[in-house]
Design a protein around this nucleic acid. Structure first.
Lengths: 355, 355
DNA sequence: GAATTTTGGGAAAACGTTTGCCATGGCGAG
DNA sequence: CTCGCCATGGCAAACGTTTTCCCAAAATTC
């Protein structure tokens, strides 16, 4: 069933049908009504691929994501999709699962499907691939640290702010030995977070040498706690490069019978929804995924709308800030020691607490 | 840059370029090589919308999901996407967020984009909408309980098996008062799970009257525990209609200082990845999301491949089974009561345990 | 060496839209 | 009454592919 079928039944030309459907004002209301009647009766829906072909616009935005199973992303995808339906766009999602081949195919698929713009949420994408997209003048937006080339919209994230707040919060709780669990260091965003930690620590005169490398996943967090636990001078607080890591840390703490927050304070990063429901609820640095998605979508929309010849894409910025929950507490050494040891002594299994 | 550009530069016709690209064997290897050279040099990628137009196949599978932020879905989407790239398909995801308008637009968008098939992962979809798709002969597969009409591939899930195992496991741990937290009862799948619970309880001669209504989200789980806690005769174990509910239950138990599993055993359903990392790790009924996605994808692929005129779609089935972790234990009354009360007395805050 | 078969590639139609251009008809003004 | 203008809608080209003929040339047969 195509536009010609409608034209035939409404006894008009396909041009009129097209104009009626697209609500071109010059078409006579009488005629338009006749067309719409037939359209509804037959349940006709225009073929968007044919339309895209002539329009040169697909009304599809691509979304390249590292892996959708990472709870950080679904919230972004959902917000992006909400905005997409509002604006009559579709979203084409591809995942890279940290595989160079998949990154390549992601880019290829975006091009083959002629998307109108791509939001790249994958940290650590090869620049040569991006060049493919730039070459075709596909509007691009990088969530988080992207390559610093002209013509690409970058969303700068103010890591420093939230992380400084987190460090100061811990310091106020008398923590002095504060560890940091990084993400995979080939990711610029992970490096940025670590550096923000370092400088925040230096700022308040604390050493920032207690750094262990994680992988932004729960497994890495578990491993990290094990490493920290084997140290001579154990930390009393640990800041994690993302929430999944923090969840891993807490999970391993449970295993080791280390009480969170009494024996060890834990702070996450991202503020994924889950952090309200961990045990205990996680104190973390918020980086609003919804806001991120909103910015990304509108950035893309702006790029598509504007003459590609005109000015440079805008710069966008997202702030981060600490949200307090219950995974942080006064450092053990700062507490009334009697109460403290009582607490531990009363635990079911012998406490193998950090310090 | 189109196929004609390639044809011009390779000094062949567009027909030959098309054939070379699609690896039609009749084309002379020499020529093919020449074509490929130009293709690579220019970085040409065929326009899939034009291709779809003439082929009458878009190589897109639609995926209608209730909300991607529910951790049950990302695993499915990821597996589906993996299979898609392997088979040169794209996936078009729409979410309904429990909104009838969005369900409608989801269906409309699937049709407009001319997807080759749709997997419906939304529980509780209006039949009239589905009729729209069936009318257009779009291959359909329902994950979980769908409408029982001819021509639609249904994946039957054996809830009974896993839930029976769970109930028997709890009974073996001497639990007699076992509660069940349902999902939203307008969903067929939620009803099916509850009914499986009822019949499993009856089977071993236990009463199945301790049923409270949840919403398949953490909030509902928290609420449910509160309700159960206010009962005169409190349960010693609770089975949840999905894992998110169980996580909510455990979260509220933490709030109430009820120990899991010593004071209360908790069992989930779904076995989402997260359950390995809850505190304590959750005993749950596995319903493999990967397997589900695999079945759905292949069902769709089968439908697309076969002559639509031929036989009925196949029937598919998925089993469920209990996976033991650490959120279940001997019922409190079944334990040495001294040890039991010792344990509780030693808790930091006074225990307000269920029973 | 001619007749026949095989092989390979080109011309053009088709897929379902949108839109620039033009024809038609109605209407007001002179 | 005639001219010109405006509003409306139709014709046909274009978007970028695939594929069906069909024909030319090469290979095979006798």
């Amino acid at each position: 069933m195509d536009i010609r079928e409608i034209a035939r039944r409404a006894k008009v030309s396909t041009a009129t049908v097209s104009r009626a459907i697209n609500r071109v004002p010059t078409v006579d209301p009488q005629l338009a009504k006749r067309v719409w009647k037939v359209v509804d009766e037959l349940g006709y829906y225009p073929n968007t691929q044919a339309r895209a072909l002539v329009l040169g616009r697909s009304r599809i935005f691509g979304l390249i994501v590292s892996e959708i199973t990472n709870p950080f992303f679904p919230e972004i995808v959902q917000t992006f999709e909400n905005l997409a339906v509002e604006n009559n766009y579709e979203i084409l999602i591809t995942t890279t699962v940290h595989d160079p081949k998949r990154m390549e195919s992601s880019v290829r698929r975006m091009i083959e499907r002629r998307v109108d713009g791509v939001a790249i949420l994958t940290f650590g994408m090869e620049e040569s691939l991006i060049e493919h997209l730039r070459f075709r003048k596909v509007p691009l937006v990088f969530v988080d640290v992207g390559p610093d080339v002209a013509g690409i919209a970058n969303i700068r994230i103010n890591y420093q702010n939230g992380i400084r707040q987190a460090v100061q919060h811990l310091a106020a709780l008398r923590h002095t030995r504060i560890a940091f669990v990084t993400g995979p260091l080939h990711l610029k965003s992970a490096v940025a977070r670590r550096d923000a930690f370092k400088s925040a620590m230096t700022e308040i005169g604390l050493p920032s040498d207690l750094i262990v490398i994680g992988d932004h996943r729960m497994e890495g967090g578990m491993q990290a706690l094990l490493e920290l636990n084997s140290l001579n001078e154990r930390p009393t607080a640990v800041l994690c490069s993302n929430d999944m890591t923090a969840i891993g840390v807490m999970r391993e703490a449970y295993e080791q019978n280390i009480d969170i927050p009494d024996d060890l304070s834990v702070v996450g990063f991202d503020d994924i929804r889950l952090t309200e429901f961990t045990i205990p609820p996680l104190t973390t640095v918020e980086m609003s995924q919804r806001e991120l998605a909103r910015i990304a979508f509108h950035a893309l929309l702006n790029e598509v709308e504007r003459d590609s010849s005109s000015r440079e894409p805008q710069k966008y910025e997202l702030n981060t800030s600490l949200v307090l929950r219950r995974s942080t507490a006064l450092a053990p050494s700062g507490r009334n020691s009697t109460e403290s040891s009582n607490t531990k002594a009363s635990r079911k299994k012998p406490a193998a607490a950090l310090r």
